[in-house]
Amino acid sequence: MLPFLKVEQVNKSFARGAATTEVLRNINLTISRGEYVSIIGHSGCGKSTLLNLIAGLAKITTGGIILDNREVNEPGPDRAVVFQNHSLLPWLTTYQNVKLAVDKVFSQSKSRSERHTWTMHNLELVQMVHAKDKLPAEISGGMKQRVGIARALAMEPKVLLLDEPFGALDALTRAHLQDSVMQIHARLGNTVIMITHDVDEAVLLSDRIVMMTNGPSATIGEVLDVPLPRPRKRLELSSDPTYLRSREAVMRFLYERHRAPSLQAA
C-alpha cells in the first residue's frame, strides 16, 4: 500500500534555558491508509510527544511528517485528537461539544440541517444520543470519552489520534469502549494511531504495534505485526496462539530488554 502517513527522521528536543533535553531521536514510521497502529512504551518515553508532533500541537525540532502528501506543521481537524482526559468543554452539552467541531469543520460544505444530522449521526455512532442534552459533568467518564471520540470522528479526520483514550477508565468500561472503537474502525476504516501502555489493549486493537525504547532520546525499538483476522473477539483471542505470541513479544520487549528506569534501579 502507498504510505499515507510518513514520519521521517524526526527529532524532538525541549530547550529550557541553556539546557536542552532530547526527547525523541530518529523516529521513522510509515503508516498505510486504514491501518490501526498502537504506540506503546513506558511512561516518560515520549510517546505522547510523538502523538503531539503528528497532531501538530508541538513543533518538530528536525525531520518531517507528511500526511497524504502534505507536510504537517500545525494542528488541524484532519488529525483529530481524542485526549486522555476527554477535554470536553464543560459549559457545552454533549451535542454542543460535537456540534462545535462540526460547525467549524463543515461551515462551508454542509448546510445547517446537514450539520445537525451529521452531529446526531456521530453521537449515534458512539451510542450517546440519549445524553445529547447533558453537560459533561452530568455523565460518566466512559460516556465523556465516547463523546470525545464522536467529536473527533465528526471532523472526518484523515488520521484519528488517540492519546491513551481508555487510561482513565475502569476495566469494564474500558473493555466496552475498546469494542466500540473496534466496531467503528471496522465500519469507517479510519487510519488510527493510539498511544497506550496496556499490552492487551495494543494487541487486541492494532494491526501493528510500535514499541518505544526508554527516554531520554527515545526511539522506535521494534515494530510488531499483529496478524490476527478481524473482526476480533476478546474471548476467543484469550487462547489464540497468535494473540499469545504477540502479547509475549511485547511483554519481552517492555519488561526484559527495555525495563522501566525505576525497575532497573531496583
Binding site: 497532531a55 501538530g56 500541537l57 494542528p75 477535554s87 468543554l89 467549524k104 471532523m155
Partner: peptide, 9 residues
C-alpha cells in the same frame, strides 16, 4: 481547551 481550539483551528 487550547489544544481543542488548535485542532479545530
Amino acid at each position: 481547551y487550547r489544544n481543542v481550539a488548535a485542532v479545530l483551528r
